[in-house]
Amino acid sequence: MPKVKIPTPLRQYAGGNAEVEVSGSTAGEALRDLTERHPELRNHLYTGDGKLRSFVNVYKGDEDIRYLDGQETEISEGDELSIIPSIAGGES
C-alpha cells in the first residue's frame, strides 16, 4: 500500500503515527482515505469547502503534486506521499 508521511504537528490527529498506509491510486484518493481513517486531520488539511489549505503541501517523492497532476497524480504500491508544511503569517 502507498504511504503518507505525517508532519510532526499533525501526528496527534493520526494516532501518533509518523506514517500511515492508505489505499488509493491517486493522491486525492490516498488523502481521502487518510482522512477517513483519521477524521480529526480533516479540519487541518482542508478548508470548509473541501479545498486543500494553501499552506498544506503534498509531495510525491521530491515533487509537489501541484506541479504534477494535483489530486489526480497517480500513485502506486511503493509510493510515498509527504505532507509538508509551509509556514506563513504576518500582521493584520
Partner: peptide, 12 residues
C-alpha cells in the same frame, strides 16, 4: 497573532 496568522497556522 493576527487573523492572517490564525488562518495559516499549524497546530502543535
Amino acid at each position: 497573532p493576527s487573523e492572517y496568522d490564525r488562518e495559516h497556522a499549524w497546530p502543535y
